[in-house]
Design a protein around this nucleic acid. Structure first.
Length: 227
DNA sequence: CCCGGGATGTTCT
DNA sequence: GAACATCCCGGGC
């Protein structure tokens, strides 16, 4: 794959400014589109990897039948969904992949935004992510387009469950990225949640239209305007 | 391009 | 014992 440029043509030094804590207080539905364009930073023993969030899905409120915390279900797995906004919720799926979420809203009110795709900020970030993936990727989306892929690419596993995302001394945190109002956002139904019944078709998946790292393009996706 | 099957283990019924 | 907010690979167009 071509690692020379990232898709938005920017190779500038990142701002390294933490994401505004106000975002963590919002509902998942509000925060989902606002997380697009923000930067996710992962520190391992090998150094830091920076990427932009390009696809999200909102889960929650106790009424969302697609959410692990539907009906207020509070178990060992879902416990961190009930913590205060700004916490990472990481779980194992299908026995071999992890998914990472940004917990939002107030303590005891379970909301989470699944990060479904990220884009490396620089070719150095891309190279490290490809090394962590352990396979040769042919297309950008093959690197980090999908929740399991991006966790592999960033070496995210359950050991990060419950960590704070507002702590740049920790293993994983969020920084301010592009202004969301300049982004072309698409809204579409969430992926692989047939059990969610009437919640399944709701357009709670958000992605940057045209971004090559997005996992699934929905031809019926609606334009989304921040309001 | 579009399938179908298998991997793999935690969670919940 | 079934389900699972997934992914990869191989085979058939």
């Amino acid at each position: 794959m071509n690692l020379k440029n990232n898709s938005n043509g920017r190779e500038g030094r990142p701002s390294r400014k933490l994401l505004s804590p106000d975002l963590y207080k919002l509902t998942a539905l509000q925060a989902g589109p606002l997380l697009l364009g923000q930067h996710l930073v992962r520190r391992t023993e090998d150094g830091e990897i920076r990427c932009r969030i390009v696809e999200t899905e909102s889960y929650g409120g106790a009424e969302d039948k697609g959410s692990h915390a539907y009906g207020g279900r509070r178990t060992a797995r879902t416990e961190v969904m009930f913590s205060a906004g700004g916490t990472a919720y990481v779980y194992l799926i299908y026995g071999m992949y992890h998914c990472v979420n940004v917990v939002t809203a107030a303590e005891h009110d379970p909301h989470a935004v699944l990060i479904r795709a990220v884009e490396p900020l620089t070719r150095t970030d891309a190279a490290r992510m490809e090394a962590y993936r352990g396979i040769t990727v042919k297309k950008p989306a093959g690197l980090s387009g999908g929740p399991g892929k991006l966790c592999r690419a960033l070496r995210i596993d359950k050991s990060l469950n419950g960590c704070r995302l507002d702590d740049p001394l920790g293993p994983l945190w969020l920084e301010q990225g592009d202004s969301p109002e300049t982004l072309d956002i698409a809204a579409a139904p969430r992926i692989n949640i047939p059990y969610a019944e009437e919640y399944a078709p709701l357009p709670w998946r958000f992605y940057l239209r045209g971004n090559p790292y997005v996992s699934v393009i929905d031809k019926q996706a609606q334009p989304f305007f921040l309001g």
